[in-house]
Amino acid sequence: MEQLNNAFTLFLSLLVEAIPFLLLGVLLSSVLLIFIDERWLIKHMPKHPVLGAFVGSCIGFLFPVCECGNVPVARRLIMQGVPMPVAIGFLLAAPTVNPIVIWSTWIAFRDRPEIVILRVVFSLIIATIVGYVFSVQKDLKPILQPAIALGMIRSQPKIKTGSSLLDGGDFMLGNAGAAAKRMTQEMMQPPKRSIRDNINLVVDNVIQELRELGGVLVLGSAVAAAIQTLTPRELIVSLGEGPILSIVVMMILAGSISICSTVDSFFALSFAATFTSGSLLAFLVFGPMFDLKSIGLMLSIFKPKAIFYIFAIATQLTFLFTLFVNFNVS
């Protein structure tokens, strides 16, 4: 009975700490839907692979989305012709390298600022490296899902013949006598929305994201509370104190519970007393890049082979970096 009480207290305290950040994250990302001009952004993305991947990793500052929201945004960016390194960089780093997540990590780990800094630095490096790897592949058909690849090809004419009709693409037939019009990027964008529509869009988005993420948060908090109280203390301590084992355990935990990156630092904090710094970092860096839920979402963009590469390289780099921290720093 006492265990149940403890679990419930821990569950509630995790929820109470996390909910304000979740609310803020959802509100901000919904409001930004209106203010960020994606077309402008796409036009100004650097073409250099490393720089592109790095800039892509930093776009999270403009789209403070957690790992549940970043896949749809990345898909939209890819379909609109953003270079692949930029999109991959965004996909992997945006859930971590964004103001709300940095702030919530700071609130949770104020007394250990190195965790906050290393979380951002490691995420940036990993996202940039994986982004660069994907820049070598010019033909995207083998790595993208057919629907996405098709969408991209349509939006840009492959061969320039001089005559707009021979260039290929989608066309809209005009009135009798008038030339057929090419469907350009601009024409495919939704028309400008009124303020009322904007508010509706924000409200709809907030409700939808809260329902999805809130549910995951409740579940994640329950799992954390259960692990902390039901697992024998000695087992947790023995798992947490090994410099290698603790990283492996936390990476598996990060991958299996799909807790949102805005609030995952509070989850990690409940393990802070028993687990090594490297393993906490592994959880905080790896969790937002990969978990069961985001793999499902990523399958809507990439073919399994590409996901395997992203997963394998990100896993290896996270393990390597955090192991280095455990062996040499903490």
Partner: peptide
């Protein structure tokens, strides 16, 4: 594909570095 080549090379390289790091042991 070009991506296979670079990804596999990188993964092998990272595995090597990890093994060296594990070999060198805990210095803290």
């Amino acid at each position: 594909l070009p991506i296979d080549r670079i990804a596999l090379t990188l993964m092998a390289g990272l595995a090597m570095i990890t093994i060296i790091l594990l070999w060198s042991g805990d210095r803290t």
